[in-house]
Computed example of a mutant assay.
Amino acid sequence: MIRGIRGAITVSADHADEIQEETQRLVLEMAKENNIEPEDVASVIISTTTDISSAFPAKAVRTIKEWNYVPVMCTHEMDVPGSMPLCIRVMMHVNTGVGQKEIHHVYLNEAKKLRPDLSAKSQVSSK
């Protein structure tokens, strides 16, 4: 069965190096928390807030060892007034037998504020 795993992370500024590092950090943490191997991943959709434009986060994923064949695509989030700035969001579609309630969604940095209910679940499970 294919399940979606959500994740989000913020960066401090629109700098290509930081976007690459933090995107890789998020994706690897999502995989680790859910015992996912690249071969299990059907596709990844990455969105960024419109204030991120100096690098493609999808390129960061493709450069992770063994992730180069995973289909990855980038897009921009809706530009809603008052929304969290400098945010990278990931929707990872994975083949898994794990139930929906057992999926560990990962929110890092300021993005923890987006879903404190899911961020707390992930923190408890990783201890």
Rank of each mutant, 00 (worst) to 15 (best):
C87R: 08
K113A: 15
N68W: 12
Q24A: 02
P38H: 04
S119I: 03
S43Q: 12
V11D: 09
N34M: 05
L114G: 06
M84L: 15
V124Y: 09
Q24R: 11
I9M: 00
V124T: 12
G4N: 11
M78F: 14
L28R: 14
V90C: 11
T63P: 02
L108R: 01
P85C: 08
S126Q: 11
P116Q: 09
H105G: 02
E18I: 09
F56L: 15
A8H: 06
R25H: 08
L114H: 01
I9E: 07
D40F: 01
D17Q: 11
T63C: 05
V90P: 00
T50N: 15
N35Q: 01
N68M: 10
A58V: 07
D117A: 12
S119G: 00
T23N: 00
A111I: 04
E39H: 07
G82L: 07
D79L: 11
A111G: 02
P57T: 08
A42W: 09
D117Q: 00
G97V: 06
K59W: 03
E33T: 00
S47W: 11
L28N: 01
K112A: 11
K127R: 15
E39F: 07
I2E: 12
A58E: 10
V70K: 03
V90Y: 02
I46L: 13
A42R: 14
S54Y: 05
R3M: 06
Y107S: 02
I103P: 00
S119T: 12
I19G: 03
V70N: 00
L26R: 01
V94E: 05
S47T: 14
G82A: 10
I36A: 07
L86P: 02
K121E: 14
E21H: 09
V106C: 03
Y69C: 10
E37G: 03
E18N: 07
H104N: 12
S54P: 05
A13P: 03
I36Q: 00
